[in-house]
């Protein structure tokens, strides 16, 4: 299995997509951070404002932006499996490892590892931007009174599990375009509807995005009421369950299909 995971990592690192996705992800997190830096302490229409830049409350909010990288890991997971079908490299993969469920298992593990890698990059990037911002604004940076360590663990866990989720989804869908479009529509449209509208929220917290949010376990008032997430461990279980469910269903259906 170690050999198969190594093979999957080689597949990813010998093509260009992974670093393109990494750069795009860092840019997106950077843009989000820029907004949070710019609008710190600014009150909009009398509504609740972001905390001031020199507070640890602000640092905590800024830190949680990292969870937006999940979509990129999910897409990468989808591509890791669908590109095999697109370029028919799946033939060689299954010739080398005819027991196909082992290939899927190796890809799931690789998806987790890639998620962790991307999360680490985000955390380093956040440390390099948020900490100086607080200090330059005259504040003092101390982790002790914040939930930043928990948020960091949440980012690591949610990105890793998004990788798993993407692999499961890709195995089920097989078609690359359908997989990516499905992932994006799901993350940006369906998830936002379910997490933004309070009435739907009891369903939304069970969806992958809601489950990922619960890993951050941070309270942000959206103005529509304080969302209630699952406990962090519950969110992790939900994400694992989605990824594994997809992978198991895929192994029993699409993965078993004839390769012609």
């Amino acid at each position: 299995m170690i050999g198969l995971v190594k093979a999957e990592l080689r597949k990813l690192f010998t093509t260009r997509l992974w670093w393109i996705m990494l750069i795009v992800m860092v840019v997106l997190v950077g843009v989000n951070l820029a907004f949070i830096i710019a609008f710190a302490g600014v009150s909009q229409n009398g509504g609740p404002a972001l905390p001031e830049r020199d507070t640890m409350e602000w640092a905590q909010v800024a830190w949680s932006v990292g969870s937006s990288g999940g979509i990129f890991v999910m897409i990468l997971g989808v591509v890791m499996i669908t590109s095999e079908y697109r370029y028919q490299t799946v033939t060689g993969t299954f010739l080398t490892t005819p027991r196909r469920e082992r290939v899927i298992a190796a890809k799931l593990i690789t998806g987790l590892l890639i998620g962790l890698l991307f999360a680490l990059v985000i955390l380093v990037f956040e440390a390099a931007t948020v900490v100086p911002t607080v200090l330059l604004s005259g504040g003092e940076f101390s982790l002790a009174e914040t939930r930043i360590p928990q948020v960091s663990v949440g980012i690591l866990a949610s990105l890793a599990l998004y990788g798993l989720f993407g692999i499961g989804l890709g195995a089920l869908v097989r078609n690359q375009i359908a997989g990516i479009v499905g992932a994006v529509v799901w993350a940006y449209v369906i998830e936002s509807i379910f997490t933004a509208i309070p009435a739907l929220h009891s369903v939304g917290k069970w969806l992958p995005g809601g489950a990922a949010q619960s890993l951050m376990s941070i309270d942000i008032d959206t103005g529509l009421g304080r969302p209630e997430w699952l406990p962090a461990w519950g969110g992790a279980l939900v994400l694992v369950a989605y990824g594994l469910l997809f992978a198991v269903v895929a192994s029993a259906t699409t993965v078993r299909r004839d390769i012609t």
């Binding site: 050999g3 198969l4 010998t14 590109s83 490299t89 799946v90 033939t91 060689g92 080398t96 490892t97």
Partner: peptide, 21 residues
């Protein structure tokens, strides 16, 4: 046709090598 166009010939084979032990 079963190659990823963006991958080098050597990398293609090295992937199969590590997967096959």
């Amino acid at each position: 046709t079963s190659f990823h166009p963006g991958r080098t010939a050597l990398d293609h084979l090295r992937i199969l090598c590590v997967a096959a032990g």
